[in-house]
Every structure is written in structure tokens, then in C-alpha cells.
Design a protein around this nucleic acid. Structure first.
Lengths: 185, 185
DNA sequence: AACTAAAAAAACTGATTTAGTTTCCTTAGA
DNA sequence: TCTAAGGAAACTAAATCAGTTTTTTTAGTT
């Protein structure tokens, strides 16, 4: 149940931010009562922390495994991007601007994680690719990574997905295609 | 003064959404009092409408002019993208999810505008490019446009710009480069 | 220096929102 | 029939904030 609560909160927080999601929203999404919700988490802030912790743990695991198992930077990028991007919808979302004011400690940890695990790690892959001559020299890898994440973020909005005929897989594939063509030498 | 108020509101609304920006915020951003603010606009909702109207008017003008003056689709895309993207920060932002609930009429008009003026217009350019053999057939133009706007949106966040060493021009150029390489045949 | 008008600063109001709690009711299993 | 878990809904206390009113400051004018 704890995990189902975190699932729901993660989705809601990504789309609407921290403040605009109420405990009633989360409870009614799950079809449970607030009473039960408060049995599992002692406060709304607690849920936010749990969301952050699970997400960061998952992403960490993924990145470590990819590092071990996939030597080619382009292939590694492809693999990570496909799996990580569906989990980073919170990056640069209303959630971040909310918790900056609401739960500064949590905000700081999220920022550090983004900096270290996302930009540095993925940026590192791209730079490795540049060195190996597989990626163009004339692009800034940090900008590239952010641009890519921004593109994905725009697409995976429920709002956007709903009113368009394409599937999320189509969207991912298209963006990856454009992006890889754009950065490869 | 009215225009300065709209400037400020546009920026704030794009970053934080409609609800989380208070009239006090806007006033203090401008160094004026709420009294003066209410002299120019009778309500917060009024300001939101004014923001929408000016933005849509500006974008409309730009698109019409580009249509008349630039026949080549890739060049036209380049030109529009450069000028329009700094003004569409509201698309897909917290502002949209806010006003969907808060001012449904305004939301509907924004959605229609986005659909018609942004996706159809820019999507149209890309399809023209496909027909003329300048753009790859195997990408979905609608996804491409959204991906591009998402990339720009991510980059132009004040938060992000501030903590990185690159300028907004650098970012625009990099993204455009990646994107054009990615879509061109 | 005295007067005036505009607007800044700040206090106020009334309505709304919402986290967290409590109470009461339903259901299902023992 | 008893019990306990949890749903539904009411409640509380605090916070927020749009919009208004009052007071103070400022700057220009006579």
C-alpha cells in the first residue's frame, strides 16, 4: 500500500506540483480514506520525501548497472534515456518550485541529485562519446542533456498524451531519433 | 505601466503558475503598491487575460509575417523558432493546469491557440519540408514540434539559466543545431 | 513653508483552502 | 453477535490571499 501511495503521489506531484495536490486528492485517487493515508504516512511532507527517496534510489541503481554493463556510450545513452526519462518528470516541474519554498531541505537534495546523477552522469556519457569521436564536438553536452529531458517532459504530460493520437513509445522513439541524429558525428 | 505589469505577470505566471503568484508578488516585483495595480486592472483574472491576449497577438503577427516573407520551410522554421520560443514559455507550464480549473474560458482559448497557431502552423512548415524533400519522412512532425518546445522550455527556466554558465543564445543555438540535424534529410 | 495629489506602505476583511483529526457508519471475518 | 479495519464525512485550526481601506511618504506647485 505504501508503494501505491508513492506511485500516486509521484504522478500527481509531477503534474501539479506539491502544493496544489491535496491529501484528499491522493486518497481519492487511490479510493482510500484519509484515515488510511495517515496510517501509512504521518504527513504530506513525509510522502514527498518518500517519493524523492524511491525515485533517486531507482535511478541510482539503473545508472550503476548501465555503467557496468554497457561500454559503448551511444548505446548506454539510449538505454538509460529510455528507462530514466519516464522517472524524471519531476525535474524542472512545478514540484521543484513548490518544494524550494515549502521544504527547502528536500529541494536541496533533489537539486544535488539532479546535478550529480543526471547531468554529470549523462553529460559524462556524451563527453565520452565526443572523445571517442562518435559525437559532434560543437555541441554543449549539458545543454543537450537538458534539452532532451525537456523534450521528454513536454511529451509525457498526460494532458498532451491524451489529446494526441500517438503513443508514448512513438514519442520516445521519435525524440530519440531526432536527438541521436542531431548529436552523432 | 500596463505593459510593464503584463511583462511581470507573464514571467511570473510562466514560472509559478496562476494560483501561486499573488497580487502582492506582482506589485512588489514592479516596486509599486497593490493600489496602483488595481488602478490598471480590476482583478487578477483580468491580468491573466491581458497576458494571453498580448502574447497571442504578438505570435500571430510574427507567424503571418514569416509566412509572407520566408518561402523556404527550413529557414522559416529557424526564424520563427528563434523568435517565438521565448514567448511560449506558458505552453505546457503550471499556468495552463492552473487556469484549466481557475478560468476555464481562458484555458480553452489558450488550448485552441496552441493547437491552431503553434502546432498546426509549425507542423505545417515541417510537412512542407518533408514534401520538398528537405526533412526526413520517418519522424512525426507534431511530436517534433512539441519536443522542440519542451527543450526550449526546460532551458529558459530562470532557475536553470542562473546556475549554468551558458547564455540563453548558446542554449538556443545548440538546441536548434541538434534539432535541425535531427530532422533534416 | 504650506498645499495638493499621487502613490507607497501597511493594516484589514472576508472568504476559501486544506492538513490533520475525530466521529460515525459499513462490511466482512471469527 | 462481536470485533476490527477502514470508508465517508464532518470538523478544527491555521494559513492564504484577493480586494479594500487607512495612513504615511514623496514630489511637485504655489
Amino acid at each position: 500500500m505504501k508503494n501505491r501511495i508513492i506511485d500516486t503521489a509521484e504522478k500527481r506531484f509531477s503534474q501539479y506540483g506539491f502544493k496544489r495536490v491535496t491529501m484528499d486528492d491522493i486518497a481519492s485517487d487511490l479510493g482510500i480514506s484519509k484515515k488510511t493515508l495517515y496510517k501509512h504516512f504521518k504527513s504530506k511532507e513525509d510522502i514527498a520525501w518518500a517519493v524523492k527517496e524511491r525515485m533517486h534510489r531507482d535511478i541510482d541503481k539503473l545508472l550503476q548497472r548501465a555503467k557496468r554493463e554497457i561500454p559503448d556510450p551511444i548505446l548506454r545513452f539510449k538505454k538509460i534515456i529510455a528507462e530514466v526519462t519516464s522517472r524524471v518528470s519531476i525535474i524542472g516541474s512545478a514540484f521543484m518550485t513548490d518544494i524550494k519554498k515549502e521544504i527547502p531541505d528536500l529541494w536541496r537534495q533533489c537539486e544535488e541529485f539532479r546535478e550529480r546523477e543526471i547531468y554529470e552522469y549523462i553529460g559524462g556519457i556524451l563527453e565520452e562519446g565526443v572523445k571517442k569521436g562518435k559525437i559532434r564536438k560543437d555541441i554543449d553536452t549539458k545543454i543537450a542533456v537538458m534539452a532532451y529531458l525537456g523534450a521528454i517532459r513536454m511529451i509525457i504530460q498526460p494532458e498532451i498524451l491524451m489529446k494526441n493520437q500517438f503513443s508514448i513509445e512513438d514519442a520516445f522513439n521519435n525524440i530519440l531519433k531526432i536527438f541521436l541524429e542531431g548529436i552523432q558525428k
